[in-house]
Design a protein around this nucleic acid. Structure first.
Length: 495
RNA sequence: GGCCCUAUGGUCAAGCGGUUAAGACACCGCCCUUUCAAGGCGGUAACGGGGGUUCGAAUCCCCCUAGGGUCACCA
Protein backbone atom coordinates (compact mmCIF):
# COMPACT_ATOMS: atom_id res chain seq x y z
CA UNK A 1 0.00 0.00 0.00
CA UNK A 2 1.40 3.32 -0.91
CA UNK A 3 -1.01 5.19 1.31
CA UNK A 4 -1.89 7.62 -1.42
CA UNK A 5 -5.16 5.99 -2.24
CA UNK A 6 -8.15 7.99 -1.19
CA UNK A 7 -11.05 5.91 -0.02
CA UNK A 8 -13.60 5.56 -2.75
CA UNK A 9 -11.29 6.94 -5.40
CA UNK A 10 -9.47 3.79 -6.33
CA UNK A 11 -10.54 1.86 -9.38
CA UNK A 12 -12.94 -0.89 -8.41
CA UNK A 13 -11.61 -4.34 -9.20
CA UNK A 14 -13.53 -7.52 -8.62
CA UNK A 15 -12.93 -11.10 -9.56
CA UNK A 16 -14.76 -14.31 -10.13
CA UNK A 17 -12.49 -17.15 -9.08
CA UNK A 18 -14.05 -20.54 -9.68
CA UNK A 19 -12.26 -23.79 -9.13
CA UNK A 20 -12.46 -25.83 -12.32
CA UNK A 21 -13.67 -28.98 -10.63
CA UNK A 22 -17.01 -29.29 -12.35
CA UNK A 23 -19.58 -27.42 -14.39
CA UNK A 24 -20.54 -23.85 -13.60
CA UNK A 25 -22.99 -24.08 -10.72
CA UNK A 26 -26.07 -21.91 -10.71
CA UNK A 27 -24.86 -20.33 -7.46
CA UNK A 28 -21.44 -19.68 -8.94
CA UNK A 29 -23.10 -18.09 -11.92
CA UNK A 30 -24.96 -15.74 -9.63
CA UNK A 31 -21.74 -14.85 -7.83
CA UNK A 32 -20.12 -14.15 -11.18
CA UNK A 33 -23.12 -12.08 -12.23
CA UNK A 34 -23.11 -9.96 -9.07
CA UNK A 35 -19.40 -9.33 -9.45
CA UNK A 36 -19.87 -8.43 -13.08
CA UNK A 37 -22.83 -6.14 -12.43
CA UNK A 38 -20.95 -4.41 -9.65
CA UNK A 39 -17.91 -3.90 -11.86
CA UNK A 40 -19.88 -2.65 -14.83
CA UNK A 41 -22.06 -0.39 -12.72
CA UNK A 42 -19.01 1.23 -11.16
CA UNK A 43 -16.78 1.36 -14.18
CA UNK A 44 -14.60 -1.20 -12.58
CA UNK A 45 -12.56 -4.13 -13.75
CA UNK A 46 -13.74 -7.74 -13.81
CA UNK A 47 -11.09 -10.42 -13.43
CA UNK A 48 -11.54 -14.13 -14.12
CA UNK A 49 -9.11 -16.31 -12.24
CA UNK A 50 -8.89 -20.08 -12.14
CA UNK A 51 -8.36 -21.56 -8.68
CA UNK A 52 -7.03 -24.88 -9.81
CA UNK A 53 -4.83 -25.83 -6.87
CA UNK A 54 -6.73 -29.04 -6.28
CA UNK A 55 -4.82 -31.21 -8.71
CA UNK A 56 -7.05 -34.20 -8.06
CA UNK A 57 -10.28 -32.57 -9.04
CA UNK A 58 -9.36 -29.77 -11.40
CA UNK A 59 -9.55 -30.27 -15.13
CA UNK A 60 -8.95 -28.21 -18.22
CA UNK A 61 -12.29 -29.36 -19.49
CA UNK A 62 -14.16 -27.93 -16.52
CA UNK A 63 -12.32 -24.67 -16.98
CA UNK A 64 -13.35 -24.54 -20.64
CA UNK A 65 -16.93 -25.28 -19.75
CA UNK A 66 -17.05 -22.59 -17.11
CA UNK A 67 -15.64 -20.07 -19.55
CA UNK A 68 -18.13 -21.17 -22.19
CA UNK A 69 -21.10 -20.85 -19.84
CA UNK A 70 -20.06 -17.46 -18.51
CA UNK A 71 -19.88 -16.21 -22.08
CA UNK A 72 -23.21 -17.77 -22.83
CA UNK A 73 -24.73 -15.81 -19.97
CA UNK A 74 -23.25 -12.65 -21.38
CA UNK A 75 -20.69 -12.20 -18.62
CA UNK A 76 -17.33 -11.06 -19.89
CA UNK A 77 -14.13 -10.04 -18.16
CA UNK A 78 -11.38 -7.52 -18.65
CA UNK A 79 -8.53 -9.56 -17.27
CA UNK A 80 -7.94 -13.22 -16.71
CA UNK A 81 -8.32 -16.48 -18.54
CA UNK A 82 -8.05 -16.18 -22.32
CA UNK A 83 -7.63 -12.42 -22.31
CA UNK A 84 -4.58 -12.08 -20.05
CA UNK A 85 -3.77 -8.84 -18.30
CA UNK A 86 -1.21 -6.96 -16.24
CA UNK A 87 -1.27 -9.43 -13.36
CA UNK A 88 -0.94 -12.62 -15.39
CA UNK A 89 -0.90 -15.51 -15.09
CA UNK A 90 -4.48 -15.95 -13.95
CA UNK A 91 -4.30 -19.62 -13.24
CA UNK A 92 -3.07 -20.44 -9.76
CA UNK A 93 -1.02 -23.46 -10.74
CA UNK A 94 1.00 -21.08 -12.91
CA UNK A 95 1.71 -18.76 -10.00
CA UNK A 96 3.52 -21.17 -7.72
CA UNK A 97 6.74 -19.15 -7.64
CA UNK A 98 4.84 -16.17 -6.36
CA UNK A 99 3.33 -18.07 -3.47
CA UNK A 100 6.72 -19.57 -2.61
CA UNK A 101 8.24 -16.14 -2.12
CA UNK A 102 5.56 -15.14 0.33
CA UNK A 103 5.80 -18.44 2.15
CA UNK A 104 9.50 -17.87 2.71
CA UNK A 105 8.74 -14.49 4.10
CA UNK A 106 6.21 -15.83 6.58
CA UNK A 107 8.56 -18.65 7.55
CA UNK A 108 11.43 -16.23 8.07
CA UNK A 109 9.29 -14.01 10.22
CA UNK A 110 8.11 -16.97 12.27
CA UNK A 111 4.52 -16.36 11.20
CA UNK A 112 4.37 -19.77 9.65
CA UNK A 113 6.08 -23.05 10.39
CA UNK A 114 6.67 -26.46 8.96
CA UNK A 115 4.48 -29.20 10.32
CA UNK A 116 5.53 -32.80 10.02
CA UNK A 117 2.50 -34.46 11.48
CA UNK A 118 1.04 -37.10 9.23
CA UNK A 119 -2.50 -36.76 7.99
CA UNK A 120 -3.42 -39.78 10.10
CA UNK A 121 -2.07 -38.20 13.26
CA UNK A 122 -3.94 -34.99 12.65
CA UNK A 123 -7.11 -36.84 11.79
CA UNK A 124 -6.89 -38.96 14.95
CA UNK A 125 -6.51 -35.90 17.10
CA UNK A 126 -9.39 -34.29 15.28
CA UNK A 127 -11.65 -37.21 16.11
CA UNK A 128 -10.55 -37.13 19.74
CA UNK A 129 -11.40 -33.47 20.03
CA UNK A 130 -14.70 -33.98 18.30
CA UNK A 131 -15.67 -36.78 20.67
CA UNK A 132 -14.84 -34.55 23.62
CA UNK A 133 -17.16 -31.99 22.15
CA UNK A 134 -14.37 -29.58 21.38
CA UNK A 135 -13.88 -27.60 18.24
CA UNK A 136 -11.35 -29.56 16.26
CA UNK A 137 -8.14 -27.63 15.88
CA UNK A 138 -4.65 -28.43 15.00
CA UNK A 139 -3.08 -29.33 18.35
CA UNK A 140 0.08 -27.45 17.70
CA UNK A 141 2.55 -30.28 18.18
CA UNK A 142 4.87 -28.82 15.56
CA UNK A 143 4.01 -25.26 16.45
CA UNK A 144 6.89 -24.93 18.81
CA UNK A 145 9.53 -26.86 16.96
CA UNK A 146 12.71 -24.83 16.91
CA UNK A 147 14.17 -23.66 13.66
CA UNK A 148 16.87 -26.31 14.03
CA UNK A 149 14.39 -29.10 14.58
CA UNK A 150 12.45 -28.00 11.54
CA UNK A 151 15.62 -27.96 9.47
CA UNK A 152 16.59 -31.40 10.70
CA UNK A 153 13.24 -32.94 9.81
CA UNK A 154 13.36 -31.26 6.43
CA UNK A 155 16.80 -32.72 5.79
CA UNK A 156 15.55 -36.14 6.73
CA UNK A 157 13.19 -35.69 3.85
CA UNK A 158 10.08 -35.90 5.94
CA UNK A 159 6.86 -34.79 4.33
CA UNK A 160 5.83 -31.37 5.50
CA UNK A 161 3.11 -28.83 5.19
CA UNK A 162 3.41 -25.18 6.07
CA UNK A 163 1.02 -23.95 8.70
CA UNK A 164 0.07 -20.45 9.65
CA UNK A 165 0.76 -19.51 13.24
CA UNK A 166 -2.57 -18.08 14.29
CA UNK A 167 -2.14 -15.38 16.92
CA UNK A 168 -3.89 -16.16 20.19
CA UNK A 169 -6.68 -14.22 21.79
CA UNK A 170 -7.30 -11.77 19.01
CA UNK A 171 -10.52 -10.34 17.76
CA UNK A 172 -10.74 -10.63 14.01
CA UNK A 173 -13.09 -8.18 12.40
CA UNK A 174 -14.60 -8.64 8.98
CA UNK A 175 -16.26 -5.59 7.53
CA UNK A 176 -18.87 -7.03 5.25
CA UNK A 177 -20.76 -4.85 2.81
CA UNK A 178 -23.93 -6.89 2.99
CA UNK A 179 -23.71 -8.17 6.55
CA UNK A 180 -22.07 -5.34 8.39
CA UNK A 181 -19.39 -5.89 10.99
CA UNK A 182 -18.78 -9.54 11.84
CA UNK A 183 -16.42 -10.48 14.64
CA UNK A 184 -14.54 -13.69 15.17
CA UNK A 185 -12.17 -14.87 17.83
CA UNK A 186 -8.78 -15.97 16.57
CA UNK A 187 -8.83 -18.79 19.11
CA UNK A 188 -11.66 -20.25 17.10
CA UNK A 189 -9.37 -21.11 14.24
CA UNK A 190 -6.54 -23.56 14.46
CA UNK A 191 -3.19 -23.24 12.76
CA UNK A 192 -4.40 -23.87 9.24
CA UNK A 193 -2.39 -25.19 6.34
CA UNK A 194 -0.92 -22.69 3.90
CA UNK A 195 1.06 -25.02 1.69
CA UNK A 196 0.08 -28.63 1.14
CA UNK A 197 2.60 -31.43 1.11
CA UNK A 198 2.47 -31.43 -2.67
CA UNK A 199 3.80 -27.88 -2.55
CA UNK A 200 0.56 -26.29 -3.70
CA UNK A 201 -1.06 -23.50 -1.73
CA UNK A 202 -4.44 -24.00 -0.07
CA UNK A 203 -7.43 -21.94 -1.07
CA UNK A 204 -7.26 -19.52 1.84
CA UNK A 205 -3.65 -18.78 1.13
CA UNK A 206 -3.53 -18.47 -2.66
CA UNK A 207 -6.71 -16.47 -2.61
CA UNK A 208 -5.26 -13.82 -0.30
CA UNK A 209 -2.03 -13.47 -2.22
CA UNK A 210 -3.76 -13.27 -5.56
CA UNK A 211 -6.39 -10.84 -4.42
CA UNK A 212 -3.65 -8.64 -3.05
CA UNK A 213 -1.39 -8.89 -6.09
CA UNK A 214 -4.28 -8.40 -8.47
CA UNK A 215 -5.37 -5.35 -6.49
CA UNK A 216 -8.85 -6.67 -5.90
CA UNK A 217 -10.90 -4.07 -4.05
CA UNK A 218 -14.12 -6.01 -3.45
CA UNK A 219 -14.46 -9.70 -2.83
CA UNK A 220 -18.02 -10.68 -3.65
CA UNK A 221 -18.60 -14.35 -3.02
CA UNK A 222 -20.94 -16.91 -1.50
CA UNK A 223 -21.77 -16.97 2.18
CA UNK A 224 -20.05 -20.32 2.59
CA UNK A 225 -16.84 -18.30 2.60
CA UNK A 226 -17.78 -16.06 5.48
CA UNK A 227 -16.29 -18.43 8.04
CA UNK A 228 -13.10 -18.58 5.99
CA UNK A 229 -12.73 -14.87 6.03
CA UNK A 230 -11.13 -14.50 9.48
CA UNK A 231 -8.31 -16.77 8.30
CA UNK A 232 -7.82 -14.57 5.31
CA UNK A 233 -7.97 -11.40 7.34
CA UNK A 234 -5.33 -12.83 9.67
CA UNK A 235 -3.14 -13.42 6.64
CA UNK A 236 -3.60 -9.87 5.41
CA UNK A 237 -2.56 -8.71 8.85
CA UNK A 238 0.48 -10.98 8.89
CA UNK A 239 1.61 -9.47 5.60
CA UNK A 240 0.68 -5.97 6.65
CA UNK A 241 -1.76 -5.59 3.80
CA UNK A 242 -5.04 -3.77 3.70
CA UNK A 243 -7.80 -6.35 3.18
CA UNK A 244 -10.32 -5.78 0.43
CA UNK A 245 -13.96 -5.09 1.18
CA UNK A 246 -15.96 -8.26 1.50
CA UNK A 247 -19.51 -8.90 0.41
CA UNK A 248 -20.89 -12.31 1.25
CA UNK A 249 -24.06 -13.08 -0.61
CA UNK A 250 -26.46 -15.65 0.72
CA UNK A 251 -26.74 -19.14 -0.61
CA UNK A 252 -29.29 -20.45 -3.05
CA UNK A 253 -31.36 -23.21 -1.51
CA UNK A 254 -33.33 -26.08 -3.00
CA UNK A 255 -37.08 -26.17 -2.69
CA UNK A 256 -36.89 -27.97 0.65
CA UNK A 257 -34.60 -25.24 2.01
CA UNK A 258 -31.58 -27.51 2.00
CA UNK A 259 -28.50 -26.99 -0.09
CA UNK A 260 -29.03 -27.36 -3.81
CA UNK A 261 -27.80 -30.67 -5.08
CA UNK A 262 -27.98 -32.73 -8.21
CA UNK A 263 -30.62 -34.94 -6.68
CA UNK A 264 -32.97 -32.02 -6.22
CA UNK A 265 -32.91 -30.70 -9.75
CA UNK A 266 -30.58 -29.07 -12.18
CA UNK A 267 -27.71 -27.24 -10.55
CA UNK A 268 -25.46 -26.56 -13.52
CA UNK A 269 -25.86 -23.69 -15.92
CA UNK A 270 -25.22 -26.01 -18.83
CA UNK A 271 -28.27 -28.06 -17.93
CA UNK A 272 -30.46 -25.03 -18.33
CA UNK A 273 -28.82 -24.12 -21.58
CA UNK A 274 -29.34 -27.63 -22.89
CA UNK A 275 -33.01 -27.56 -21.99
CA UNK A 276 -33.52 -24.42 -23.93
CA UNK A 277 -33.52 -21.73 -21.31
CA UNK A 278 -32.48 -18.41 -22.76
CA UNK A 279 -29.45 -16.75 -21.20
CA UNK A 280 -31.34 -13.54 -20.56
CA UNK A 281 -33.97 -15.49 -18.63
CA UNK A 282 -31.36 -17.21 -16.48
CA UNK A 283 -29.54 -13.94 -15.85
CA UNK A 284 -32.74 -12.10 -15.04
CA UNK A 285 -33.82 -14.85 -12.68
CA UNK A 286 -30.47 -15.09 -10.93
CA UNK A 287 -30.32 -11.35 -10.46
CA UNK A 288 -33.66 -11.42 -8.69
CA UNK A 289 -32.43 -14.13 -6.34
CA UNK A 290 -30.91 -12.17 -3.50
CA UNK A 291 -31.16 -8.77 -5.07
CA UNK A 292 -34.15 -6.57 -5.72
CA UNK A 293 -34.58 -3.57 -7.97
CA UNK A 294 -35.84 -0.31 -6.61
CA UNK A 295 -38.93 -0.05 -8.76
CA UNK A 296 -41.65 -2.55 -9.46
CA UNK A 297 -40.39 -3.78 -12.80
CA UNK A 298 -38.70 -7.16 -12.60
CA UNK A 299 -38.03 -8.07 -16.20
CA UNK A 300 -34.59 -6.82 -17.11
CA UNK A 301 -31.96 -7.40 -19.72
CA UNK A 302 -28.32 -7.34 -18.71
CA UNK A 303 -27.87 -3.66 -19.64
CA UNK A 304 -30.81 -2.59 -17.53
CA UNK A 305 -29.56 -4.74 -14.68
CA UNK A 306 -26.26 -2.89 -14.78
CA UNK A 307 -27.99 0.44 -14.42
CA UNK A 308 -30.07 -0.75 -11.49
CA UNK A 309 -27.61 -2.91 -9.60
CA UNK A 310 -26.61 -1.88 -6.13
CA UNK A 311 -24.78 -3.99 -3.57
CA UNK A 312 -26.81 -2.27 -0.87
CA UNK A 313 -29.94 -3.91 -2.16
CA UNK A 314 -28.58 -7.43 -1.81
CA UNK A 315 -30.54 -9.42 0.71
CA UNK A 316 -28.93 -11.33 3.54
CA UNK A 317 -31.36 -14.21 3.81
CA UNK A 318 -30.80 -17.33 1.75
CA UNK A 319 -33.11 -17.69 -1.25
CA UNK A 320 -34.99 -20.72 -2.47
CA UNK A 321 -34.56 -21.46 -6.15
CA UNK A 322 -38.03 -20.82 -7.54
CA UNK A 323 -38.35 -22.96 -10.62
CA UNK A 324 -41.80 -21.59 -11.40
CA UNK A 325 -40.49 -18.09 -11.69
CA UNK A 326 -37.60 -19.14 -13.89
CA UNK A 327 -40.06 -20.91 -16.17
CA UNK A 328 -42.28 -17.88 -16.30
CA UNK A 329 -39.38 -15.60 -17.17
CA UNK A 330 -38.13 -18.00 -19.79
CA UNK A 331 -41.57 -18.29 -21.32
CA UNK A 332 -41.75 -14.54 -21.35
CA UNK A 333 -38.49 -14.23 -23.25
CA UNK A 334 -39.43 -17.04 -25.65
CA UNK A 335 -42.61 -15.17 -26.51
CA UNK A 336 -40.92 -11.82 -26.90
CA UNK A 337 -37.64 -12.56 -28.63
CA UNK A 338 -37.33 -12.35 -32.38
CA UNK A 339 -38.98 -15.24 -34.18
CA UNK A 340 -35.83 -15.77 -36.20
CA UNK A 341 -33.76 -16.40 -33.08
CA UNK A 342 -36.29 -18.60 -31.34
CA UNK A 343 -36.62 -20.66 -34.48
CA UNK A 344 -32.88 -21.07 -34.72
CA UNK A 345 -32.78 -22.23 -31.12
CA UNK A 346 -35.79 -24.50 -31.53
CA UNK A 347 -34.65 -26.33 -34.66
CA UNK A 348 -32.12 -28.58 -32.88
CA UNK A 349 -34.85 -29.90 -30.60
CA UNK A 350 -37.08 -30.59 -33.61
CA UNK A 351 -34.23 -32.37 -35.30
CA UNK A 352 -33.46 -34.40 -32.25
CA UNK A 353 -37.08 -35.46 -32.01
CA UNK A 354 -36.95 -36.56 -35.63
CA UNK A 355 -39.37 -33.96 -36.96
CA UNK A 356 -36.70 -32.39 -39.14
CA UNK A 357 -33.81 -34.01 -40.91
CA UNK A 358 -30.88 -32.67 -42.84
CA UNK A 359 -30.33 -29.14 -44.03
CA UNK A 360 -33.37 -26.92 -44.27
CA UNK A 361 -34.16 -25.23 -47.55
CA UNK A 362 -35.23 -21.60 -47.32
CA UNK A 363 -38.82 -22.71 -47.93
CA UNK A 364 -38.63 -25.24 -45.13
CA UNK A 365 -37.07 -22.67 -42.87
CA UNK A 366 -39.93 -20.27 -43.43
CA UNK A 367 -42.39 -23.04 -42.83
CA UNK A 368 -40.69 -24.02 -39.55
CA UNK A 369 -40.79 -20.39 -38.53
CA UNK A 370 -44.55 -20.38 -38.91
CA UNK A 371 -44.74 -23.52 -36.82
CA UNK A 372 -42.61 -21.96 -34.10
CA UNK A 373 -44.64 -18.78 -34.23
CA UNK A 374 -47.85 -20.64 -33.62
CA UNK A 375 -46.64 -22.69 -30.65
CA UNK A 376 -44.02 -20.60 -28.95
CA UNK A 377 -46.39 -19.30 -26.35
CA UNK A 378 -46.73 -22.75 -24.82
CA UNK A 379 -43.33 -24.08 -23.77
CA UNK A 380 -41.50 -22.87 -20.68
CA UNK A 381 -38.24 -24.00 -22.24
CA UNK A 382 -37.39 -24.76 -25.84
CA UNK A 383 -36.91 -28.48 -25.25
CA UNK A 384 -40.62 -28.61 -24.50
CA UNK A 385 -41.52 -27.29 -27.90
CA UNK A 386 -41.67 -30.80 -29.30
CA UNK A 387 -44.68 -31.44 -27.10
CA UNK A 388 -46.71 -29.02 -29.19
CA UNK A 389 -45.69 -29.50 -32.79
CA UNK A 390 -46.82 -33.00 -33.61
CA UNK A 391 -50.01 -31.69 -35.14
CA UNK A 392 -48.01 -30.00 -37.89
CA UNK A 393 -45.98 -33.04 -38.82
CA UNK A 394 -48.15 -36.04 -38.24
CA UNK A 395 -51.11 -36.54 -40.58
CA UNK A 396 -52.28 -39.64 -38.80
CA UNK A 397 -54.89 -37.96 -36.66
CA UNK A 398 -55.96 -39.79 -33.56
CA UNK A 399 -59.00 -38.60 -31.73
CA UNK A 400 -58.27 -37.64 -28.17
CA UNK A 401 -61.81 -38.40 -27.12
CA UNK A 402 -64.37 -40.32 -29.13
CA UNK A 403 -67.04 -37.81 -28.09
CA UNK A 404 -65.32 -35.22 -30.22
CA UNK A 405 -66.47 -37.11 -33.30
CA UNK A 406 -70.00 -36.14 -32.45
CA UNK A 407 -69.15 -32.57 -33.24
CA UNK A 408 -68.15 -33.66 -36.72
CA UNK A 409 -71.63 -35.00 -37.19
CA UNK A 410 -73.34 -31.69 -36.53
CA UNK A 411 -75.70 -30.71 -39.31
CA UNK A 412 -73.81 -27.61 -40.48
CA UNK A 413 -70.51 -29.39 -40.98
CA UNK A 414 -70.95 -30.35 -44.67
CA UNK A 415 -71.82 -26.77 -45.54
CA UNK A 416 -68.86 -25.45 -43.62
CA UNK A 417 -66.45 -27.82 -45.29
CA UNK A 418 -67.82 -27.08 -48.71
CA UNK A 419 -67.53 -23.35 -48.10
CA UNK A 420 -63.98 -23.82 -46.89
CA UNK A 421 -62.89 -25.75 -49.95
CA UNK A 422 -64.48 -23.21 -52.20
CA UNK A 423 -62.84 -20.30 -50.42
CA UNK A 424 -59.49 -22.02 -50.36
CA UNK A 425 -59.74 -22.57 -54.10
CA UNK A 426 -60.15 -18.88 -54.55
CA UNK A 427 -57.27 -18.00 -52.26
CA UNK A 428 -54.10 -17.99 -54.35
CA UNK A 429 -51.79 -17.30 -51.42
CA UNK A 430 -52.61 -19.09 -48.23
CA UNK A 431 -51.17 -17.28 -45.22
CA UNK A 432 -52.36 -16.98 -41.62
CA UNK A 433 -53.91 -13.67 -42.59
CA UNK A 434 -55.78 -14.90 -45.64
CA UNK A 435 -56.84 -18.03 -43.80
CA UNK A 436 -58.22 -15.89 -41.04
CA UNK A 437 -60.25 -13.96 -43.55
CA UNK A 438 -61.52 -17.15 -45.16
CA UNK A 439 -62.82 -18.41 -41.83
CA UNK A 440 -64.43 -15.10 -40.98
CA UNK A 441 -66.18 -14.98 -44.33
CA UNK A 442 -67.53 -18.47 -43.81
CA UNK A 443 -69.07 -17.45 -40.50
CA UNK A 444 -70.59 -14.43 -42.14
CA UNK A 445 -71.73 -16.19 -45.31
CA UNK A 446 -73.31 -19.07 -43.49
CA UNK A 447 -74.54 -16.92 -40.64
CA UNK A 448 -72.94 -19.24 -38.15
CA UNK A 449 -71.32 -18.53 -34.80
CA UNK A 450 -67.58 -19.05 -34.61
CA UNK A 451 -67.94 -22.18 -32.58
CA UNK A 452 -70.00 -23.93 -35.25
CA UNK A 453 -67.33 -23.26 -37.81
CA UNK A 454 -64.09 -23.48 -35.92
CA UNK A 455 -64.75 -26.42 -33.68
CA UNK A 456 -65.55 -29.07 -36.31
CA UNK A 457 -62.66 -27.93 -38.46
CA UNK A 458 -60.26 -27.95 -35.52
CA UNK A 459 -61.34 -31.43 -34.53
CA UNK A 460 -61.18 -32.74 -38.06
CA UNK A 461 -57.71 -31.26 -38.54
CA UNK A 462 -56.20 -32.12 -35.19
CA UNK A 463 -58.35 -34.68 -33.43
CA UNK A 464 -58.45 -32.37 -30.47
CA UNK A 465 -60.62 -29.53 -29.25
CA UNK A 466 -57.71 -27.34 -28.36
CA UNK A 467 -54.39 -26.28 -29.86
CA UNK A 468 -52.83 -23.50 -31.89
CA UNK A 469 -54.75 -20.83 -33.75
CA UNK A 470 -56.87 -22.48 -36.42
CA UNK A 471 -56.03 -20.02 -39.17
CA UNK A 472 -52.34 -20.50 -38.51
CA UNK A 473 -52.78 -24.22 -38.55
CA UNK A 474 -54.57 -24.08 -41.92
CA UNK A 475 -51.93 -21.85 -43.44
CA UNK A 476 -49.13 -24.05 -42.15
CA UNK A 477 -50.68 -27.29 -43.34
CA UNK A 478 -51.57 -25.99 -46.78
CA UNK A 479 -54.59 -26.72 -48.93
CA UNK A 480 -53.79 -30.34 -49.76
CA UNK A 481 -53.14 -31.52 -46.23
CA UNK A 482 -56.14 -29.61 -44.94
CA UNK A 483 -58.38 -31.29 -47.49
CA UNK A 484 -57.00 -34.74 -46.94
CA UNK A 485 -57.24 -34.49 -43.17
CA UNK A 486 -60.81 -33.24 -43.31
CA UNK A 487 -61.89 -35.84 -45.80
CA UNK A 488 -60.37 -38.60 -43.79
CA UNK A 489 -61.94 -37.37 -40.57
CA UNK A 490 -65.38 -37.06 -42.10
CA UNK A 491 -65.11 -40.46 -43.70
CA UNK A 492 -64.30 -41.79 -40.27
CA UNK A 493 -67.66 -40.67 -38.94
CA UNK A 494 -69.58 -41.74 -41.99
CA UNK A 495 -70.04 -38.38 -43.64
C1' G B 1 -21.22 -29.69 19.46
C1' G B 2 -18.22 -24.62 18.96
C1' C B 3 -18.21 -20.33 15.95
C1' C B 4 -20.83 -17.40 12.27
C1' C B 5 -25.07 -15.83 9.24
C1' U B 6 -30.34 -15.48 8.62
C1' A B 7 -35.87 -15.00 9.92
C1' U B 8 -42.20 -10.32 6.20
C1' G B 9 -47.70 -14.45 2.29
C1' G B 10 -46.33 -21.24 -0.60
C1' U B 11 -41.70 -18.81 -3.24
C1' C B 12 -38.61 -14.28 -4.51
C1' A B 13 -39.02 -9.92 -1.96
C1' A B 14 -40.15 -3.95 -0.75
C1' G B 15 -39.94 -1.80 3.98
C1' C B 16 -34.71 0.85 6.91
C1' G B 17 -39.63 4.08 14.28
C1' G B 18 -45.75 6.30 12.58
C1' U B 19 -47.74 2.67 5.61
C1' U B 20 -54.82 0.60 4.44
C1' A B 21 -47.48 -3.91 5.22
C1' A B 22 -45.58 -2.68 -2.04
C1' G B 23 -44.59 -5.67 -6.31
C1' A B 24 -43.45 -10.42 -8.94
C1' C B 25 -44.11 -15.96 -9.47
C1' A B 26 -47.64 -19.67 -8.11
C1' C B 27 -52.93 -20.24 -6.94
C1' C B 28 -58.30 -18.71 -7.55
C1' G B 29 -62.07 -15.71 -10.16
C1' C B 30 -63.68 -12.47 -14.15
C1' C B 31 -62.96 -10.35 -19.08
C1' C B 32 -61.21 -11.26 -24.04
C1' U B 33 -61.88 -15.47 -27.28
C1' U B 34 -63.03 -20.83 -32.18
C1' U B 35 -59.98 -24.16 -28.16
C1' C B 36 -55.71 -24.33 -24.91
C1' A B 37 -52.68 -20.65 -23.84
C1' A B 38 -51.16 -15.63 -23.89
C1' G B 39 -52.94 -10.89 -22.40
C1' G B 40 -56.06 -7.47 -19.28
C1' C B 41 -58.62 -6.84 -14.56
C1' G B 42 -59.50 -8.45 -9.63
C1' G B 43 -58.91 -11.77 -5.28
C1' U B 44 -56.96 -15.25 -1.26
C1' A B 45 -52.49 -15.06 1.48
C1' A B 46 -47.24 -12.57 5.63
C1' C B 47 -44.15 -9.55 9.90
C1' G B 48 -41.68 -17.36 13.96
C1' G B 49 -42.32 -16.91 19.75
C1' G B 50 -41.26 -14.19 24.30
C1' G B 51 -39.32 -10.11 26.75
C1' G B 52 -37.66 -5.12 26.68
C1' U B 53 -36.54 0.41 24.56
C1' U B 54 -40.17 4.06 22.83
C1' C B 55 -45.84 8.27 22.91
C1' G B 56 -45.46 4.59 18.89
C1' A B 57 -42.26 -1.10 16.60
C1' A B 58 -42.01 -5.59 10.76
C1' U B 59 -38.25 -1.90 11.63
C1' C B 60 -33.73 -0.94 17.62
C1' C B 61 -31.80 -4.45 21.92
C1' C B 62 -31.89 -9.36 24.53
C1' C B 63 -33.47 -14.50 24.96
C1' C B 64 -35.75 -18.71 22.72
C1' U B 65 -36.99 -21.39 18.38
C1' A B 66 -36.15 -22.66 13.40
C1' G B 67 -33.22 -22.82 8.94
C1' G B 68 -28.43 -22.34 6.75
C1' G B 69 -23.04 -22.03 6.62
C1' U B 70 -18.36 -23.47 8.57
C1' C B 71 -14.92 -26.05 11.63
C1' A B 72 -9.82 -30.42 5.45
C1' C B 73 -3.10 -31.10 3.02
C1' C B 74 -11.57 -28.96 -1.18
C1' A B 75 -12.39 -24.72 -2.95
Amino acid sequence: MDGKEVAGMEKIRVRFAPSPTGPLHIGGARTALFNWLFARKNNGVMVLRSEDTDLERSSAESERNIVRDLKWLGIDWDEGLEVGGPYAPYRQTERLDLYRQFTERLLAEGKAYYCFCSEEEVEEERQRQLSRGETPHYHGKCRNLSREEQERCLKEGRQAVVRFRVPEGEKVVVEDVVRGRVEFDSDGVGDFVLVKSDGLPTYNYACVIDDYLMKITHVIRGEEHLSNTPRQVLLYQAFGWQPPKFAHISLILAEDRSKMSKRKGDTAVEQYREKGYLPEAVVNFLALLGWSPEGEEEVFFLEELVKQFDLNRVSRAPAVFDMDKLKWLNGHYIKNSSLERITELAVPYLQEAGYLTGELTPEQWNWVKMVVASVREYPTCLAEIIDYVDVFFNDEIEFEQEELKEILQQEQVPRVVEALYEALDQTPELTPETAKKVLRDICKGLKLGGKKVYMPLRIALTGSNHGPELYELIAILGKERVASRINRALAGVGK
